[in-house]
């Protein structure tokens, strides 16, 4: 699952870091670090994190089938 976070929009609420700690983590007080390609077993957590983001900064793409462009 591919992820990108609009870090202009991100304000460090850290909801994602609570909901999917293996994918999103805070570095220092408010800088977010994330894994742009999340393992499939994290998909549900990542979806929840994206939904919970107070500023809706997280964009997720479910794994597309081969050839889908």
């Amino acid at each position: 699952m591919k992820i990108v976070v609009d870090l202009n929009r991100c304000q460090g609420y850290a909801q994602c870091a609570f909901l999917a700690p293996q994918v999103f983590e805070m570095h220092g007080e408010e800088a977010l670090r994330y894994t742009p390609l999340a393992p499939e077993d994290q998909s549900e957590r990542v979806r929840r994190a994206a939904a919970a983001c107070p500023v809706q900064a997280i964009l997720v793409e479910e794994e597309a089938g081969p050839g889908v462009r």
Binding site: K2, I3, V4, L7, R33, Y34, T35, P36, L37, L59, V60, E61, A64, V68, R69
Partner: peptide, 26 residues
């Protein structure tokens, strides 16, 4: 996505080939 290249990738936490941008739609 390029921003992770100078951060997570150089830290060795993310492989360079794993920063593909998610699509909003086909």
């Amino acid at each position: 996505d390029r921003p992770p290249l100078s951060k997570q990738v150089l830290l060795g936490r993310v492989r360079a080939e794993d920063t593909g941008l998610p699509r909003r739609r086909e």
